[in-house]
């Protein structure tokens, strides 16, 4: 078992942080890589990009949003309990170098994945401008950590409950209009990455996105995580999870993410009914 050493509800009942004992993975993990987790014997294999890894403590950190049965089961796991399986690190690490000015755009739990990349880009000597977006104030995570990891940090919420009212693209446009930016990293919901990439393409700024399609094994064996990048089929698990944002077919990705939405709904509803009955 992979024991949970720390558990935090970053947004009550919906956004959860777990620090998990996994020394072999922690030793190898690099920003941008993911793990696959399974809670119990009947559980689904869930890919999640790591939010952090601590080689000395031998732990990895994940932050996830509860969206269905599998993540609802994760939510039930308390400190001292753990995951039956954790596999990783998987995928290619982020390519990190000093390019000058980098804008790191994060939305929702994508911020969790963006944080270690942002930190590493700053360590490489880049001037890092962070832009964080959330639906509402309660769902905004890692604000302090991102403040430390970047030189400048902008925050916006869809409903205006915190920071600027509006989308990350509104803030990004202002930044791109006022500064010479060499690179953008955008990690968040697919529509966010799509519109960020659309904008940066117009400004001709190279953009990196991190994708999280449906997958089973995470080692290149099932091909479930196929994404079209520049007209070619890639496997997110071994060729990614990061790709050139200007080349990704986001519409196809969104449709593929819906592949099991009916089944997931059925499964989750059954689980909620059972749970309420207890």
């Amino acid at each position: 078992m992979f024991k949970i050493l720390k558990r935090e509800e970053m947004a009550e009942g919906t956004v959860i942080l777990n620090e998990i004992e996994a020394p072999l993975i922690a030793r190898k993990a690099k920003p941008g890589q993911f793990v696959i987790l399974r809670a119990n014997e009947t559980g689904e294999r869930v890919p999640l990009t790591m939010a952090d890894a601590d080689t000395e403590k031998g732990t990895i950190t994940i932050i996830y949003m509860v969206v269905g049965k599998a993540t609802a089961v994760f939510r039930d796991l308390q400190v001292g309990q753990g995951y039956l399986d954790v596999i990783g690190p998987l995928g290619k690490p982020t390519h990190l170098e000093n390019v000058g000015t980098v804008v790191c755009v994060g939305g929702g739990t994508g911020i969790a994945v963006l944080h270690p990349i942002t930190r590493a880009l700053k360590q490489k000597g880049n001037h890092v401008i962070g832009i964080l977006g959330a639906r509402t104030k309660e769902l905004l995570i890692l604000e302090d950590q991102m403040k430390t990891a970047s030189n400048v940090l902008h925050i916006c919420t869809d409903d205006g409950s915190y920071g600027v009212k509006g989308f990350v693209t509104d803030v990004l446009k202002k930044v791109l209009d006022s500064e010479k930016v060499q690179q953008v990293v955008a990690i968040g919901p697919v529509p966010m990455m799509k519109f960020v990439s659309k904008m940066t393409k117009e400004y001709e700024v190279p953009t990196l996105v991190s994708l999280n399609p449906i997958m089973v094994d995470g080692t290149g064996m099932c091909g479930g995580c196929r994404v079209s990048v520049g007209g070619q089929t890639k496997f997110a698990c071994v060729d990614g999870p990061e790709f050139d944002g200007h080349q990704v077919d986001y519409d196809e990705l969104m449709l593929r993410l819906q592949a099991y939405c009916d089944e997931e709904k059925e499964c989750y509803e059954d689980y909620c009914v059972l749970r309420d009955a207890e």
Partner: peptide, 18 residues
């Protein structure tokens, strides 16, 4: 086949993998 065999998805929704 991995869904059906390794993950026992033929027992869905008793197991979580569809």
């Amino acid at each position: 086949l991995t869904r059906a065999n390794l993950m026992k998805a033929y027992e869905f929704p008793k197991v979580d993998t569809p």
